[in-house]
Design a protein around this nucleic acid. Structure first.
Lengths: 246, 246
DNA sequence: AACATCATTATGTCAGGACAAAGCCTTGAC
DNA sequence: GTCAAGGCTTTGTCCTGACATAATGATGTT
């Protein structure tokens, strides 16, 4: 009677079982096999048919609940959220975002130099004043249109940017390649008028509204590894956020 | 040698054990008892001293990892993130946010009426065109300053707003009181110029930059229950988002 | 002195079971 | 016919136990 998708797990795979299940469920949802509002089979039965334990099955479902794709209700069941927007913000650089969107971006590096940390950078990166930091300033293009102006500061002790080509790969890709794993980022999103400098670089008028994002990123040791001040053209960019309660 | 905080659990309390532990750990972190960069006691030992099982202890730590307060690294341990900004966005209404901030806000209700759903609302709320929806329009003040202009649409079948006083409580509080539990919200944040209408209401100039937030919210049955279009004065409001990888 | 190997430590994954609590529906009393 | 009581389903919480895997530092070899 039910058209519930057939799930499979490969126990010889290095991919965790809960992740395998979560991926298949997610694909079923975005592909429309599981329709918005539909109730999925209960945890116990699902674990049973897959030969998994209930905690493992539960962990799989939990990842999709955290992503905002499913909602659970005690005594009732688990249902697909009735939403058509499925993309959520992941912790990636803008570069990855745009590549995923199909349009190949490119980057103009305006500045890349080693400077002494000013007060702002020292506070955000938890450094002593005067410690060496990288100062990076870039303009991101999509096609021929400038999209964002990005100013970043990174502790020089973390990574050596002198040899990298930031016009080809994103900052986060470079960090990954250097063995730095970004785990947490705090972002503050707001808006303000463009300065004349920003307006010139972004092909806008002075005073036009810009979307601003200030970010501090941390690695898997809890160290602050990057602080950034980005401004975006709001007609070309927006932030997608999914909030989940409980 | 270590000044690790003493944790306690009350097994007679209805509050889940993992939640009790998570709360105490979080308080220790924000109070500075656990300092940024500090490594916390490993899961097994911590579970042991509290008389808990490891999964329960792990669940407690996981909530703080998801909040961006802790980072875990296999083979190494769990450390406090070196950040000073600790507040994160929860899934609450603006009202709750501001109340928590100490400043008592008030609200001016410009419009509250039952209309036939237009195409936009029908799509976002998954309704048939012409279905009755509530149209709400409000201005939120902080002190004497207007902060935000909020337009919302809600299916009339979900809640009866004709009897409520939205100038006293927030929309989400009213939904809770009506037995509707908001679980998931998708938000899109961007920016644009103020229209003359918005400028007049928000005490700004026409064309000045505004922070925009478009939201669709879902309840614990996965139903779309609210869609909102809010504009904020960027000098008075910003969004804080914490992203966590893995 | 440089390098590979191994042991240690901590988190990551998974099993299988138990009871609690919330929602919903059926049943039964009035 | 209405309402309350009780039973069923399903998720929420918690337990004990086990092995896998990544990171680190110590050890031993060349």
């Amino acid at each position: 009677m039910s058209t519930f998708p057939t799930l499979r797990v490969d126990r010889s795979s290095p991919v965790p079982l809960y992740h395998q299940v979560a991926e298949q469920l997610e694909r079923s949802i975005v592909d429309g096999v599981l329709k918005p509002g539909e109730r999925i089979v209960n945890e116990v039965a699902l674990a049973d048919t897959l030969g998994l334990s209930r905690p493992t099955m539960r962990q799989a479902i939990s990842t999709l609940v955290d992503k905002g794709l499913l909602v659970r209700k005690r005594g009732v069941g688990t249902q697909v959220v009735q939403s058509q927007i499925r993309r959520s913000v992941e912790l990636t650089s803008l570069n990855d975002d745009l590549l995923a969107g199909g349009r190949a971006p490119h980057t103009l590096v305006l500045r890349l130099e080693l400077i002494e940390s000013d007060e702002t950078a020292s506070r955000q990166l938890q450094l002593a004043a005067g410690d060496p930091v990288w100062a990076v300033e870039r303009v991101r293009f999509v096609g021929d249109e400038p999209l964002a102006l990005m100013c970043n500061r990174l502790p020089a002790s973390i990574v050596d940017l002198s040899v990298v080509d930031l016009s080809l790969t994103g900052l986060y890709a470079q960090l990954r390649a250097s063995g730095v794993h970004v785990r947490v980022a705090h972002q503050t999103i707001s808006s303000r008028r463009a300065t004349s400098y920003e307006a010139r670089l972004l092909n806008e008028r002075k005073g036009s509204p810009l979307l601003t994002m200030d970010r501090t990123a941390f690695d898997d040791k809890g160290r602050a590894i990057e602080s950034g001040s980005h401004v975006y053209r709001p007609d070309l960019y927006s932030f997608e956020v999914t909030l989940v309660d409980r």
